[in-house]
Simulated scan of single mutants.
Amino acid sequence: MSSIILPRRRFVHAAAVLACGTLAAPARAADGWQPAVLSQARQRDITSAITGQQYRIFVSVPEAPAPAGGYPVVFALDGNASFPTLALLGRMSAWRGAGGKTAPVIVGIGYQGERDYGMPRGRDYTPPSGIPGDKTGASGGVDLFLDFIERELRPLIATLAPLDPSRQALYGHSYGGLCTLYALFNRPAMFQTYLAASPSIWYGERAVLSGLQGFEQRLARLPARPALMLSVGELEQPAPSDKPYQGRDAVAAGRRMVDEARELAGKLSAAGTLSRVQFHLLAHENHGSASFPAMARGLEFFLD
């Protein structure tokens, strides 16, 4: 499969890539250095008619032929940051070949530019907060974003490779984890596995948890119930203290990242409404570093 240059070079339409089969190697600079490439991957910029936003889509398709039912697929939010790691992990699952696992298609949903985390994520990944006066348009766009994935992006990816409709996952970290939980609670039929890493449950006075109202009824209409993995770094919430928290510790203490994730996992596990619920407290990890073990654990959870 062809390689791509990340993140600067934009490649041609996916159909042209498939037709050509190979792409020319990047030009070598005068001093001998050239842009790095990511094996077995491609990218394309698209504009959504639903959100009006431009997205940079990254795709990795396994080299092995698709199973009879199609490839499993992971849609990963914050694709500029998450895709390189998940694409490598996906390839490693094929190299190991343990337990008859099928390597998945990895789809990273990112944004144009050089930033690892695009600014439009604050709108795309957040639910309506319910806070009076919060109508700036800079947040609360999660429903349109999920419409984009379901109605525009998923059909586009299906033109690149056959996808198994019964083995699809959504991964997100931080605001992306918030979006993942929102999708689970409000659109549980969209995916079979939801991987929520360090979810910002605190956002908008915990607005995402309003989706638990009617959640069991929405699940009851499904032929099979989805699975959820929740993870959070142990350093994302300060240790209990007899003294008042200051600065960032005060903010982190108020957000209760660890407690909120653990309590939600316990509540959903006790309810027995999902096929599987798994919670990981990631030792020695903070909010940023927790994303890496969360991706590894999440992919293993999904493929198992």
Rank of each mutant, 00 (worst) to 15 (best):
G137V: 13
R121C: 06
K243S: 12
Y182L: 13
V142Q: 12
S139E: 00
Q237L: 05
P226M: 00
L163T: 01
G141A: 06
L230P: 00
Y117C: 02
L230K: 12
S200N: 09
A169T: 07
R154F: 06
M119P: 15
G172Q: 02
I131V: 07
L170Q: 02
A183C: 01
K135M: 15
E150C: 05
G233E: 07
R218K: 07
C179D: 12
A207F: 15
I131G: 01
R154L: 01
E234H: 15
S198Y: 14
E205G: 11
T180Q: 00
L195A: 07
D116E: 13
P240S: 03
L235G: 12
I131L: 02
G140Q: 05
L144Q: 13
Y125E: 01
L163M: 07
P127E: 02
D147S: 14
L222D: 00
M119E: 12
R121Y: 02
I157P: 07
P240E: 04
C179M: 11
L219H: 00
S200R: 15
P165G: 02
T193D: 15
T159C: 01
L219E: 01
Y203G: 04
D143E: 06
I131C: 03
R206T: 01
G130T: 14
G172M: 05
A196N: 10
E216R: 10
S174G: 07
T136C: 04
C179A: 05
G133V: 10
Y175V: 08
G118D: 09
R123T: 02
G140K: 06
E205Y: 13
R167P: 14
L212A: 11
A189D: 10
D143N: 10
G233P: 01
L178F: 09
A224L: 09
G118M: 14
A239Q: 08
S210Y: 14
G211P: 04
L228Y: 00
Q213C: 13
G130A: 13
T180P: 00
L222M: 01
P199V: 03
M229S: 07
R167F: 04
L212S: 10
A138Y: 12
A239N: 00
P128W: 13
A158F: 14
V208R: 06
G130F: 06
P162E: 11
D147K: 05
L228G: 02
S200D: 09
V232H: 10
L153C: 08
G214W: 13
Q213Y: 14
A239E: 12
Y171Q: 08
R115N: 14
R121D: 05
P238V: 15
N186S: 04
L146C: 02
R206W: 00
F185Y: 14
Y175L: 12
